[in-house]
């Protein structure tokens, strides 16, 4: 009996060790490519939300990474951060770029989400994202009709929860930026 158990243990251990060795080679081989893609995606996202920025600097403030965009004359034209929050099915991650000189949003970009295809997934569409372009900071109202005032956001038909989630993530991100950069002063 004892001999039998030791055989089982040895078999599983040997398979485990071989798997681990093989996978650590695969890991070493693929990690540089994976990191490259992530850095590229991050850079693209920053460019999308800070369109006029010529140069981007990473700044750590209060445990959060901020991306400061500067124009060709070295003036700070805006700040971007990653923000996330609960969506309808899973966490929604987005990148938001704001102009802290005039307290307005430049643009938002959805980085990842698992909203319903065809409905909530339209948070990634330009029609919905344009709600936030050039919007003033503040508390927004999500409305199920055309937005009439500056503080209203037009919800996606059939995806009110997804629309509200994105809006509250945006509000939260603005507060983070404001508290890090002195209340928009």
């Amino acid at each position: 009996m004892e001999k039998k158990i030791s055989k089982l243990v040895i078999t599983l251990t040997v398979i485990g060790i071989i798997s681990a060795i093989a996978l650590s080679f695969v890991y070493q081989w693929t990690t540089p490519y994976i990191e490259e893609h992530q850095a590229e995606a991050q850079k693209k996202a920053i460019n999308a939300v800070l369109p006029q920025a010529e140069e981007v600097k990473e700044v750590e403030k209060a445990g959060q990474t901020f991306y400061e965009g500067y124009d060709s004359n070295g003036n700070r034209i805006g700040v971007a951060i990653n923000a996330s929050g609960p969506g309808y099915q899973n966490v929604i991650e987005l990148m938001i770029g704001v102009n802290i000189n005039v307290d307005k949003i430049y643009a938002i970009k959805i980085l990842s989400h698992e909203e319903t295809p065809g409905l909530g997934a339209r948070i990634n569409g330009d029609e919905f994202k344009s709600n936030f372009v050039d919007k003033e900071f503040g508390d927004y109202d999500v409305v199920k009709r055309q937005a009439k005032t500056e503080m209203e956001v037009e919800a996606i038909a059939g995806a009110t929860i997804s629309s509200k989630s994105v809006t509250s993530i945006v509000e939260k991100a603005i507060k983070q930026i404001q508290s890090a950069y002195g209340g928009g002063a």
């Binding site: 996978l23 695969v26 890991y27 081989w29 693929t30 990690t31 490519y33 994976i34 893609h37 995606a41």
Partner: peptide
Amino acid sequence: FFLKAFFP
């Protein structure tokens, strides 16, 4: 790993 590296 392979898909993440070559077909992101």
